[in-house]
């Protein structure tokens, strides 16, 4: 068993190449017991490669990777007894039922939870005898989570758990993950949804092109880059950018999809001068609003592009 102070996951200077492509290029981080740690980044950032090395599915080219204090390549079998894994692609025997799959996967472990309990945990009671091929996307994902929980693991890996799900299914999955945390389990997940990272994760690593660009709690990540709040509005025609950037309190500005975004240290001053400017030009701003900066803003600021494709 790991000491409570010892990190459950420790990754130091991890590298993994596929041919000439450096999928993961010098990544280091630790995850503490009971923490929900998220890797946020676009497709191809190296999130999945990193998590699959931790799961014992791939071997690192270089770097030190330990789980429960054990080296992942040398102790893969005993690590696998203690982790739960949900892979990015849904991957199950299509003609087996929910119950049969849980029984089967349970038999792979030294200890496993009763199938009934798992089915109830992911709320699949009415689909227990359905073949996995006949489940909806959200149900398949919940089954996939149940399979990850089959051995009652201390550490759970979730690779893009809500990709392709509708908002309602996504919400119900988030509730499941929050439940793990309250039971003291450690969770590492990857996502390219910043709301998901913000909602679930104690700490987030922002990843792009095989590097971790920034790491910390969500307020830390935002506070480090944005003292400002964001003022947003639509106008037709668009107001001239050079005049906007000279409004009171404005530090940065951008226009995207017809929406203008002003980062401001003095929101009342910015809005007052904005309205005066618009009035002078005979233009009326619509959908005017104020919000805190988000992870999306952080990502945009770090990489110069939006997180979502």
């Amino acid at each position: 068993m790991t000491e409570s102070g010892e990190p459950v996951i420790r990754v130091a200077d991890l590298c993994k190449c596929y041919g000439d492509v450096k999928a993961v290029d010098g990544v280091s981080f630790t995850v503490a017991r009971g923490e929900v740690f998220g890797m946020l980044g676009p497709n191809g950032a190296g999130k999945t490669t990193t998590i699959e090395i931790l799961e014992g599915l791939r071997e690192p080219d270089s770097g030190a990777v330990t789980v429960f204090g054990m080296d992942v390549t040398r102790h893969a079998e005993s690590i696998k007894q203690r982790i739960g894994v949900q892979l990015q692609t849904v991957s199950l025997y299509p003609r087996l039922t929910v119950t049969e799959l849980l029984d089967l996967f349970g038999s792979f472990y030294e200890h496993h939870l009763p199938t009934k309990q798992l089915i109830d945990a992911v709320d699949l009671g009415d689909r227990a005898t359905a073949r996995s091929m006949n489940l909806s996307g959200g149900q398949q994902q919940r089954l996939s989570i149940a399979l990850a929980l089959v051995s009652d693991p201390e550490l759970i890996f979730l690779d893009e758990p809500t990709t392709g799900l509708d908002p309602q299914a996504r919400r119900s999955l988030w509730d499941l993950v929050k439940g793990f945390q309250s039971k003291g389990k450690t969770v590492m997940l990857t996502t390219h949804y910043m709301e998901e990272a913000a909602e679930l994760c104690d700490r987030v690593a922002i990843m792009d092109h095989g590097h971790i660009l920034e790491m910390g709690t969500v307020p830390e990540l935002i506070g480090r880059r944005f003292k400002e709040r964001a003022v947003f509005f639509d106008t037709t025609p668009q107001l001239p950018m050079d005049r906007l950037s000279k409004l009171d309190g404005v530090t940065r500005s951008s226009q995207e999809d017809g929406q203008t975004l002003l980062y401001s240290l003095d929101v009342p001053g910015t809005i007052g001068t904005l309205l005066a400017l618009a009035d002078g030009l005979g233009v009326e701003p619509h959908n005017l609003g104020i919000r805190q900066a988000t992870l999306e803003d952080v990502f945009l600021d770090l990489t110069g592009r939006a997180l979502r494709d």
């Binding site: 799961e55 014992g56 079998e77 696998k80 894994v85 892979l87 199950l92 792979f108 472990y109 399979l147």
Partner: peptide, 8 residues
């Protein structure tokens, strides 16, 4: 691959 992630 999924089975590869279990101790089987």
């Amino acid at each position: 691959k999924r089975i590869g992630a279990t101790p089987l």
